[in-house]
Amino acid sequence: MKKSRVIQLLGLILIGVALGFGYTHRSQTNAGESITAVGSTALQPLVEAAGEQYSANHTGIFINVQGGGSGTGLSQIQSGAVAIGNSDIFAEEQAGIQASKLKDHRVAVVGIAPIVNAKAGVTNLTQQQLIKIFTGKITNWREVGGKNVPIVLINRAQGSGTRKTFESYALNGHKSAESQEQDSSGLARSIVSSTPGAISYVAFSYLDKSVTTVTMNGVRPTEANVRNNRWKIWSYEHLYTSKNPNQLTKNFINYVLSTAVQKKLVTQLGYISVHAMQVERSATGKITTVK
């Protein structure tokens, strides 16, 4: 009893000393310099990869990237809890956000394409057909030249950036009918690939052989077509900061916008570089040509 008490006490003292030693000898460089970016899961891989490279080049600086969704990102940056809020949509489009208090940095462009199950038997749809399909007026692929298979709509979650973009630019602002919803691109793709007659939409980086990519009005969803706005379904990826971000945040955003990142990382991850765009689009959807 007595002996075990002594051993316990010694153990506690030892742990205490070890912790104290650790605290006084912690490397000071790693302690302070870090920024946190929170938000869109679609943008997360890019910021994460850029952050890793940035840390590798600047010893002791730590870029902490988290998902959580565009809404989380915007509300966190609005409350000042983080340095950067990642978003798929313009702050102006998000309810509950005062966009005038935030600064927008567009770091990449993402194209979105409709995908259908291979059994539907269609490879092209006109925009009118697409609208009718998503508003529930057309319910069988036969009606648009496909096989006799009922259409299964797979939407993205309400409020998701991809869905907002798709409804604005593919459905011309029509709200899609109540249907199945999924909250991630990967899941939407795997459901479309396994469900006969399913249709959904994903970012270009998720297009693969398991699903049929549909052309709209004969235009193919390619990077070249997005650049000149012939393919209209695309959106910006935003890094939002406060009006006066600190130096480290500024440096990091400049790094993301640098040619090194835009040329390599952005394209590797399946986004389109903002530098490559021949047009610019405002929050209200106004298109201007970039010289």
Binding site: S75, A95, G96, A157, Q158, E181
Partner: peptide, 15 residues
């Protein structure tokens, strides 16, 4: 709940 919570802003009606 899980699908929507990340896409809404704290304090708004949606949230």
């Amino acid at each position: 709940l899980t699908m929507g919570i990340g896409n809404t802003v704290m304090g708004s009606l949606q949230n």
